[in-house]
């Protein structure tokens, strides 16, 4: 079962529909206790950094422990940013699981970046199997992640500057775009993610 964390902010319906469409069993989780029989965890999301961290606060310890134990994890958009230490958008702290910070998009481009943009693959990973350079994904965000260790970067996207659009490290995957709104290519990424459950 894939646990979708509902922390009162994001549109959880889309991600749930997408996962069910590709045949996986999902559970919308509102309490940390309900994570006990999860095979994988997804934090979806739109919203602001502080509100997200506030909503995620009750889950923080449990999720951090499960990730350490090796549970498969996928962060989407705010769910990606939550993995980092700090964000310029707020004063609160992120999980700090991926060292680095979240900063605002440059002033000379459309903010929020909203629409379809291409990715450039930076390393070979299971998550991006079947995905090619210049495939389009749907983005909605005003801030972007800057990891300290560049090795985690799986894909980048040009929006004024090169921003990090996907990261992977061991059991952790995260994407800045919305795979659940990115057509067949987005579904492919979700399939790749759940495919890892059986690995």
């Amino acid at each position: 079962m894939i646990a979708i964390i509902d922390y009162g902010m994001g549109n959880i319906y889309s991600i749930r529909n997408a996962l069910e469409n590709i045949g996986s069993k999902t559970k919308v989780v509102t309490k940390p206790h309900d994570l006990k029989d999860a095979d994988a965890i997804i934090i979806p999301g739109v919203g602001s950094f502080d509100n997200t961290m506030k909503g995620l606060q009750p889950f923080e310890e449990k999720i951090t422990n499960l990730i350490e134990e090796g549970i498969l994890f996928l962060g989407i958009c705010m769910g990606m940013q939550a993995l980092f230490n700090k964000s310029e958008e707020g004063i609160g702290s992120g999980f700090g699981i991926i060292p680095g910070k979240v900063i605002r998009l440059p002033d000379n481009v459309l903010v929020p970046q909203m629409g379809w943009n291409e990715i450039r693959i930076r390393k070979e990973t299971m998550l991006l199997e079947g995905i090619e350079n210049k495939d389009f994904f749907y983005f909605v965000h005003s801030y972007h992640c800057v990891p300290e260790n560049r090795d985690v970067i799986a894909a980048t996207t040009e929006h004024g500057i090169d921003i990090v659009s996907a990261i992977t490290r061991d059991n952790i995957s995260a994407v800045q775009f919305h795979p659940e709104k990115s057509g067949e290519k987005g579904l492919r990424i979700l399939k790749n993610f759940i495919g890892c459950i059986k690995c």
Binding site: Y13, S14, A18, E20, E180, G183, G186
Partner: peptide
């Protein structure tokens, strides 16, 4: 929204935050 995975926009007769919420909750 069960089979179409791109952004969906809804309009017509949305007069309040509550109307908008109903629409967002449908997908």
């Amino acid at each position: 929204s069960k089979n179409v995975f791109i952004p969906l926009t809804v309009g017509g007769g949305i007069h309040s935050l509550k109307d908008a919420k109903t629409v967002f909750h449908s997908g």
